[in-house]
């Protein structure tokens, strides 16, 4: 069973919810950090690392002894990752999607493929939580292949909690697709609401059941709650702004451990979600 924690924008408390939910469960579970541009769940869970695997993509290169500089490969590459100019054949690996068209269409069999590292997936353990995090190499633009590798670790016999990247772009979709339920974390501010509405649209299109958590619920306005009510979105939990939360969080600790009332609140959260996704 897969539950994703997502958010229309960064900094809403997505990781706070994902890590505390994992910690609050009283059975073994998995936490998958799919925010591969800025993974940070491990900073809280501090897992003991068991394994590190590199993620590669294949990047084409022209074999200069065979390449006739005919330009066919540049013509068929819809991602503009190749330029044949002057007497040179250039490949821009960061734009390459690895589709293989250039090699297929090269009339001289001149395209060879080279492995290039795009990221790393680490697996580890923190008490009852298996922690799997993906990290994309700096400057690399293709997050989905790294995210897919993280998700290959999902075990069907366990509860898997996915910490999705913020926003509504490709990497977000790649992370949350296949989920049984999504928890959308938001803040009751005008910007927060704007991004929240976009996320809601995406989830409705993907047809994944979801509910909302309003973080710093006492700092903004009423509009987010009104929107949820009008659109039949269940508010699963409200987290008020409390100095204690900020303190515990900034120390890298769990609010479900430091603040007993939250242990109870997260237990109730799980009780609300579980029947919706029971298989």
């Amino acid at each position: 069973m897969i539950v994703s924690v997502a958010s229309g924008k960064g900094g809403t408390g997505k990781t706070l919810v994902a890590t505390n939910l994992a910690m609050s469960l009283d059975f073994p579970c998995q936490l998958l950090d799919c925010d591969v541009e800025e993974p940070n769940a491990h900073l809280f869970l501090k897992p003991q690392i068991k394994k590190e695997e590199k993620v590669f993509k294949l990047v084409p290169k022209a074999d200069v002894s065979k390449c006739q500089l005919c330009g066919k490969c540049q013509e068929v590459c819809v991602y503009n990752a190749i330029a044949v100019v002057g007497k040179k054949h250039l490949v821009f690996p960061q734009l390459c999607h690895g589709c293989g068209a250039c090699s297929y269409f090269c009339p001289h069999g001149a395209i060879v493929e080279e492995k290039q590292e795009i990221g790393v997936v680490t697996t580890g353990e923190s008490l009852h939580v298996d922690v799997i995090s993906g990290r994309m190499k700096i400057g690399e633009a293709m997050a989905p292949p790294v995210i897919r590798r993280v998700k290959e670790h999902i075990r069907p016999d366990m509860v898997a909690i996915i910490d999705a990247p913020p926003g509504t772009s490709c990497p977000v979709i790649e992370s949350i697709k296949g989920s049984d339920f999504v928890i959308l974390v938001t803040e009751p501010t005008p910007f927060g609401l704007n991004d929240f509405v976009l996320s809601v649209e995406v989830l409705r299109k993907l047809n994944i059941p979801f509910g909302a958590i309003i973080n710093r619920s006492d700092l903004g306005n009423q509009e987010t709650e009104d929107f949820c009510q009008k659109n039949g979105i269940e508010i699963l939990m409200k987290i008020p702004f409390q100095k204690e939360i900020a303190e515990v969080y900034s120390r890298g600790d769990f609010i479900v451990e430091a603040l007993p009332s939250f242990r109870q609140a997260f237990k109730e959260l799980w009780e609300k979600i579980q029947p919706k996704v029971a298989v």
Binding site: Y79, N80, A83
Partner: peptide, 10 residues
């Protein structure tokens, strides 16, 4: 959407 600098260069 991407690679415009390369296209313009070409």
């Amino acid at each position: 959407t991407g690679g415009v600098g390369i296209q313009s260069g070409r």
